[in-house]
Amino acid sequence: MKKFVLFVGGLVALMVLLSTLGPMVFLAVSVLLLYVIFKQFAKSDSTIGKVGWVIAGLIVLGIAFSNIYAVIGVVAAYALYLIIKNWKNDKTEAAGYEKVEEDDPFKNFERQWAELNN
């Protein structure tokens, strides 16, 4: 039952991610343009140039806010990542494998000591 719920959740997250892919691209492009506009604003020496860059920045900021619902796509991508991660953990637990942290020598020692006592 858990695999079925993960599968359905993964399908829903994938459909939401694919449906918001276009706005996600436009949001990324507008954020990149805002960065370039800010850099050009900082380089500009004249007042007219700075005013022009502020106006361009406000226009691009309006475009960015119109695509703000693309954040739903980012949340769907993260949910899909978590679902895939849970799916892989279920496979290793079902096969009888035990996850062992190899960085901690005390965990390995305790596991080996328990194996020797059995």
Rank of each mutant, 00 (worst) to 15 (best):
K2T: 13
K2L: 06
K3E: 15
V5I: 09
L6V: 01
L6Q: 02
G10T: 01
G10N: 00
G10R: 00
L11Q: 06
V12R: 01
V12K: 01
L14F: 00
L17T: 11
L18P: 15
S19V: 12
S19R: 09
G22K: 14
P23N: 03
V25R: 08
F26C: 06
S30M: 07
S30R: 04
L33F: 12
Y35N: 13
V36M: 11
I37S: 04
Q40A: 13
Q40G: 10
Q40P: 04
F41P: 03
A42K: 12
S44Q: 05
D45C: 03
D45M: 11
S46N: 01
S46Y: 01
S46W: 01
G49S: 07
G49V: 07
G49T: 04
K50V: 01
V51A: 15
G52C: 03
G57K: 00
V60E: 03
V60P: 05
L61V: 06
G62F: 12
I63D: 01
I63H: 02
A64D: 01
F65S: 06
S66G: 11
N67C: 07
I68H: 08
Y69A: 11
Y69I: 07
Y69P: 03
Y69Q: 11
V71I: 14
V71L: 14
V71D: 07
G73W: 00
V75E: 09
V75Q: 05
V75A: 09
Y78H: 14
Y78K: 12
Y78N: 08
A79Y: 03
Y81H: 13
K85V: 06
W87F: 12
K88F: 15
K88P: 05
D90G: 15
K91Y: 14
T92R: 09
A94C: 04
E98D: 14
K99Q: 10
V100N: 01
E102V: 15
D103C: 09
D104F: 07
P105W: 06
P105A: 02
F106P: 04
N108H: 12
F109G: 02
F109P: 03
Q112K: 10
A114M: 12
N117R: 10
N118E: 09
